[in-house]
């Protein structure tokens, strides 16, 4: 027993010294003690030492005030402890630095990302407790939120999915949920409003679209949105689906009236004229 305690003590002491050496070696003398301690704490919570050190170094290079650098560390550690992915949060910091955004605004953006994933994972947990499934679905929902699908609309989509889940096996439910949120995400990315995108998928779920049909609908939307304004197209799809039109018919459907989907108009796809030169987001240095 005594020998075990000695070995354990030596192991942890050695590990601490190793971390301390690495942190001290890789970070310059300009790093305050508090930041060094915080960096080591990040490593202790399970964050890769290279990532923790890189984050600290880059924040210093970008003249982060110590309070904001510590807050950034705290956000990452909180995400780690909650079982949320930390790569998107760190990447948000790197993005902000590349855009020369002020440290305070970068930290706020990092917190937005953490909060987004926390909400997304909470939603995913409503459908599955299995970790890998929950993470995968949570990531898809988070991307939908980032694309512009708002919390309320995510909630409505989840309600519909939970209704469908009552008649499906869990694996099928997860597949359907994933494809549903991919559809909402892609519609939002292409410019459809959150409400319009959510309405389409909710109608599709109500009409008992399968995973395959949801995917076909998403593909068809991506094609048609090259020639029709996305929000208008989403409204047309909602109306058509409500009328009972199947996914395979959406692309070629030309129903008349409010649900009409004929005609060409709206913004084109990639390669069209224009662009926006600007000073980037708020809080620029």
């Amino acid at each position: 027993m005594k020998r075990i305690c000695i070995v354990a003590f030596a192991f942890f002491f050695g590990a601490t010294v190793a971390f301390a050496d690495e942190v001290d070696e890789e970070l310059s003398n300009q790093v305050t003690d508090q930041l060094r301690v915080s960096t080591r704490q990040m490593i202790r919570t399970g964050i890769e030492s290279d990532d923790a050190i890189k984050m600290t170094r880059l924040m210093l290079n970008h003249h982060f005030r110590e309070e904001h650098a510590l807050r950034a560390h705290a956000i990452i550690m909180s995400a780690q402890e909650q079982g949320l992915p930390i790569a998107p949060i760190m990447n948000k910091a790197y993005e902000g630095m590349a855009k020369q955004v002020q440290d305070r605004d970068i930290v706020q953006a990092m917190e937005n990302v953490r909060s987004r994933y926390a909400f997304a994972y909470e939603q995913a947990r409503e459908l599955t407790e299995e970790k890998a499934q929950m993470r995968s679905l949570g990531n898809t929902i988070a991307k939908g939120l980032a694309a512009g699908v708002n919390d309320n609309d995510v909630g409505e989509i989840m309600e519909r999915l939970q209704q469908r889940a009552q008649q499906m096996r869990r694996a099928q439910t997860i597949e359907l949920a994933t494809e549903t949120f991919r559809a909402a995400r892609d519609m939002a990315r292409l410019g459809a409003s959150s409400k319009a995108a959510a309405d389409v998928v909710c109608q599709a779920l109500k009409q008992r679209y399968s995973t395959k049909e949801m995917k076909a609908m998403r593909t068809s939307f991506m094609t048609r949105s090259r020639t029709t304004a996305p929000t208008d197209l989403a409204r047309m799809y909602s109306s058509a689906i409500k009328q009972g039109i199947g996914a395979e018919s959406l692309e070629s459907s030309s129903t008349s009236g409010p649900g009409s989907m004929g005609g060409i108009g709206g913004p084109g796809g990639s390669g069209h004229e224009g662009g926006s030169g600007h000073g980037g987001g708020g809080g620029h240095k």
Binding site: K92, E95, G96, A98, K99, Q100, V101, D105, Q108, A109, N112, V113, A146, A147, G148, D186, A188, R189, L190, G191, S225, R226, G269, S270, H272, E273, G274, G275, S276, G277, H278, G279, G280, G281, G282, G283
Partner: peptide
């Protein structure tokens, strides 16, 4: 996800698929 920096200024070209960046752009 991507953007450009043109002569020191962040520049977003016209593109089909976009998302907000949490920095107001």
């Amino acid at each position: 996800k991507y953007f450009y920096i043109v002569d020191g200024v962040v520049y977003l070209p016209s593109c089909r698929a976009k998302e907000t960046d949490d920095f107001g752009s």
